[in-house]
Write a protein that binds this DNA or RNA. Structure first.
Length: 219
DNA sequence: ATATCGATTATCT
DNA sequence: GATAATCGATATG
């Protein structure tokens, strides 16, 4: 029996970002476009706390840029970074209290060819769609993931993830996450040392260098 | 395999 | 004017 597919509701996000970050692992992030449905399984997240977290954008208080983090739970906070990349977060906690979770990596599930095209990755034959080394380039990293899904601040900031008609949603297909590893967050200088990065153990689509062992069989 | 560096711009000091 | 929740390219062992 295929389990039913549930859209995550606001209450899912109305709690501590650490719990949300952990609970998001294994869920499906889905983007609907005219041409296709793009989706990936969430394999890596980071929690960003409120005004106490020196690494969080909310630390300086509410501004035009970070206002979504202070708003109601379940909304997209998208920011532009390093002059090149977008990063996607979801707001957590009730209206008025800042907090969010950064999506850092997906395992591609559907719309793989469309996502590869959006990333400028060339697919040479159906075999390429099964190679981990190729699939890993699609959405293993927050900037890559946004490029694959076509996420921009202009298009998606302040979008409601929990709307049934939203073109950006998170679905629960009852996938079971076996083991989770918690590490320091990536790419931050302040408030390093906090363990707020959540990854699915042994999953090859987590960002960063691969473990030397897990290599593909030679062709 | 690891290390270093340049790109490129919104945002804040 | 400096910085940044990144990426991809290049260099080197």
């Amino acid at each position: 029996m295929p389990a039913s597919l549930m859209v995550l509701k606001p209450s899912f996000f109305n709690r501590d970002p650490r719990r949300v970050a952990r609970a998001l692992l294994g869920k499906l992030l889905v983007r609907k476009t005219r041409r296709a449905i793009l989706a990936g399984r969430i394999v890596e997240t980071e929690a960003y706390l409120g005004e106490n977290d020196d690494a969080a954008h909310a630390v300086a208080g509410k501004t035009a840029r970070n206002a979504v983090l202070f708003g109601p739970p379940g909304f997209a906070y998208v920011y532009f970074i390093y002059g090149n990349h977008y990063c996607l977060n979801v707001s957590c906690l009730p209206d008025g209290i800042a907090g969010g979770v950064l999506f850092r990596a997906l395992e591609p599930v559907t719309g793989i060819e469309e996502m590869a095209e959006a990333r400028g990755i060339e697919i040479n034959g159906p075999d390429d769609l099964k190679r981990i080394s190729v699939l890993r380039q699609i959405a293993s990293g927050p900037g890559r993931m946004c490029e694959a899904l076509g996420v921009t601040r202009e298009r998606d900031n302040d979008k409601n993830f929990t709307g049934l008609r939203s073109d950006l949603r998170i679905l629960d297909d009852h996938y079971r996450v076996r083991r989770v590893i918690i590490t320091p967050r990536i790419g931050i200088a302040k408030a390093a040392g906090y363990l707020l990065r959540y990854v699915i153990a042994e999953n090859p689509f987590v960002s960063g260098p691969r473990m030397p062992h897990v290599r593909e069989a030679a062709s």
